[in-house]
Amino acid sequence: MGSNSAPASNRRGPIGQLGEQMAAAHCEKLGWVVLERNWRNRYGELDIIAADGAKLVVVEVKTRSTDKFSDAAQAVTPAKLARMRRLTRMWLAAQERHWSGIRFDVIAVHLNLSAPPGGQLVDLRHHRGVYA
Rank of each mutant, 00 (worst) to 15 (best):
A93L: 10
E45W: 12
D47V: 04
R11E: 01
G119Q: 06
H98C: 11
A25D: 15
R42F: 08
S100A: 12
D47H: 12
V58D: 02
V76R: 07
S114Q: 15
R86E: 15
R83M: 11
I49M: 03
M1Q: 06
Y43V: 09
A25I: 13
M90T: 13
R103W: 01
D67G: 07
H98S: 15
M84K: 11
I107F: 00
P116L: 06
D71E: 09
L18T: 14
A6K: 08
R125Y: 05
R40P: 08
V109C: 02
G19K: 00
P117F: 03
R64L: 08
M90C: 08
V34N: 07
N41H: 06
A23T: 02
P117M: 04
R37V: 06
V76T: 13
R11Y: 01
L56T: 03
P78Q: 02
A54Y: 08
K80Y: 11
H26D: 08
P117D: 05
W32T: 07
H127I: 01
A75Q: 10
E96A: 11
W91K: 05
D105W: 10
E28L: 10
R97K: 15
A108L: 05
T77V: 00
L124V: 09
D67Y: 09
G118R: 12
E45V: 12
N41S: 04
S70N: 09
V122G: 02
V61Q: 07
I107L: 02
L113A: 03
S114H: 13
H127P: 07
L92G: 14
N10G: 01
D52F: 01
N4R: 12
P14L: 01
A75T: 09
A94V: 13
S100G: 06
L30W: 08
V34D: 05
Q17M: 08
R37Y: 03
A24V: 10
L30R: 15
R97W: 04
K29T: 14
K62F: 01
R86K: 14
I15S: 03
I102L: 07
V57T: 13
K80W: 12
L92N: 14
R37K: 14
A72Y: 05
I49K: 02
L124W: 06
W32P: 08
M1N: 07
I107K: 03
R12Q: 09
Q21F: 10
A51T: 09
P117E: 07
D47N: 14
